[in-house]
Design a protein around this nucleic acid. Structure first.
Lengths: 343, 343
DNA sequence: CTGAAAGCGCTTACAG
DNA sequence: CTGAAAGCGCTTACAG
């Protein structure tokens, strides 16, 4: 049971072969005779040998691990990405090095630098930022040798494959859905426009487009800053200035939850008095009462695919597999918080 | 900007010293003259040198990374542990290798084996299990050379430091709190008794103890299996068999949320008609309406402390720092779901 | 305070 | 199909 000091040489000795041969069976090279292979494998099991990955890493110049930087692991929005990425990595026998940036650019940079120290073959970023300094740094990385894939973040570099989401289209369809339900006075609670991902900006665009197409010109947009409290205030304000509203579309579920609270406090019932539509489909959306109708982001899939592309790249698989950007569509999930407008 | 091929030797050449000296300044050894040190540092910066950690790992037999195995990263209950652990690791300049076990023992074992391959100096487990096979394996690990710390899980091995939580006491105090509010008909919704951590069993104990001390003999215990739906059913059953109930204590917040739903459907108001007390203080507890009163588990702290102990051990710091088990107390958080009993 | 040399545990041409 | 040897990029006694 003791694997202290049992190295490839020990195995070689016990099996009566050379280190080279042991290495060959370890790496499944096919030019080894069946008998030697079996002998070696037996010894490996018997001695409970575990290869030393530092040594292997040094020799091969690969670590078989990828770095994952995430804005906030505690946020269920991100942890689903991580899970997808992790599952794919496991499948391919890659390890994951985790780093949390806490939304701050300096920490994001710190994480990346850490990863650069040879400990990681490539990096998958699922993270806010949008900061110029960081973008420069990422561009540099991409121009050097360390493969990088970016999920849910805009960045201007052809060399960096990106995985995004059709924000404009989703918001357009969400709004259209509300309109088809008969709503004409629809408010939109956006995030902050400076946000890295342009998510809020694009969603506002979609909302506007749907209104325009349907000749609705009451456009009511209020910022909720992607926060529960912020959305609470925004909702109060909307209610005060536009009491005839019949639906509110929030640019995130978390904001919708804040809105639900404000609506309740104002004595309004959802969806009887006002319909509420969220965005994201976080865990909470189906737990809260009333359950939120929302646009589902395929976060697990995005993480999974991001990792897949990264590994494809690392393994030198054909370029077509990973070089294109991908943009996912969101799915409209109807639950209890939306209903046809009352006449 | 290109760091391809710049190694310690390149630095040495440019600085006009030997590799040994470069290594010394890299490792902050004090026996280097100030002038050479500065010279070397300049070159390092100029050439944007990043040490190769595989090489370093091979030479020192340390990787400066720890493995973290978690049952389910997507669960906010766990992600707070991870965050605490991560923060501490960052502080100490350790890397974290993440593995998700998806609650299944085989995957847990797979993760650990992966970690054993020299890639990790120690392991922090925050994970379910309780399986015999796994326990044996962990015992073996502990008896070998790879340091291991276990959070929120019982295991019989003096060599493995454990970080736990005072479940009996917390449930006792939660129940007492309800009793002091005037409740005498208090139901308890437990998890499943076979669960790894004995959490449910201990919490039932605490509940019973409080009842006994206060001469209450209506003991109503129903299993909710630590699931929302399960708790929903349990609540319905309780309501049917004991309509005179005035409070329900759930062994987890998630179950309390399920309970809230069942109560609402039964036309009961919380806390006016029945008080609801949760356990854990997950994110959701303060978001849901009414906000849940609950017993707060210091998950961040537990993760942080677990990592701290592990690193203390790895760094060979004095044994007293890490060898003892630790058991955290839970804090009672009063929110909106509990109130004095109506007369 | 500094350098030469051996060694950490693997892989990989090269030769046979 | 197999072995001997060099090399991956560091660290660390040892000597001076």
């Amino acid at each position: 049971m003791n694997n202290k000091n049992v190295d490839i040489y020990t195995i070689a000795e016990h099996a009566g072969v050379s280190k080279s041969t042991v290495s060959r069976v370890l790496n499944n090279k096919d030019d080894v005779s069946e008998t030697t292979r079996e002998k070696v494998i037996d010894v490996i099991k018997e001695l409970n040998y575990k290869p030393n990955s530092s040594a292997k890493g040094l020799a091969t110049q690969k670590t078989k691990t990828v770095g994952l930087v995430v804005s906030e692991i505690t946020n269920s929005f991100f942890s689903m990405f991580v899970k997808g990425a992790e599952d794919k990595a496991m499948e391919e026998n890659y390890n994951i090095m985790l780093a949390n940036s806490n939304w701050v650019v300096e920490e994001e940079l710190k994480c990346i630098r850490m990863f650069e120290e040879g400990r990681v073959d490539g990096i998958l970023m699922i993270s806010g930022g949008g900061d110029d300094l960081l973008n420069d740094y990422l561009n540099n990385l991409a121009n050097k040798d360390i493969p990088l894939i970016v999920v849910d973040r805009k960045i201007n570099n052809q060399l960096i494959p990106k995985i995004n989401v059709e924000n404009v289209k989703a918001a357009y369809e969400g709004t259209k859905y509300l309109i088809e339900l008969g709503h004409r006075k629809i408010a939109f609670v956006k995030g902050d426009d400076i946000a890295a991902s342009d998510a809020s900006i694009d969603r506002v665009k979609g909302y506007r487009k749907a209104l325009a197409e349907n000749d609705i010109d009451t456009e009511i947009i209020e910022p909720g800053f992607f926060e529960r409290e912020g959305a609470c205030f925004a909702t109060e304000k909307i209610l005060k200035n536009h009491p005839d509203i019949t639906a509110i579309f929030y640019a995130s579920d978390m904001m919708a939850v804040g809105g639900l609270k404000a609506l309740k406090e104002a004595g309004l019932k959802v969806p009887e008095d006002v319909s509420v539509l969220g965005f994201d489909d976080i865990e909470l959306a189906k737990i809260i009462d009333p359950a939120l109708s929302t646009l589902r982001q395929p976060r697990y899939k995005m993480g999974y695919l991001g990792m897949e592309k990264l590994i494809d790249k690392l393994e030198g698989r054909p370029k077509e597999v990973y070089e294109d950007d991908i943009s996912f569509e969101l799915e409209l999930i109807e639950r209890e918080s939306t209903a046809p407008v009352k006449r």
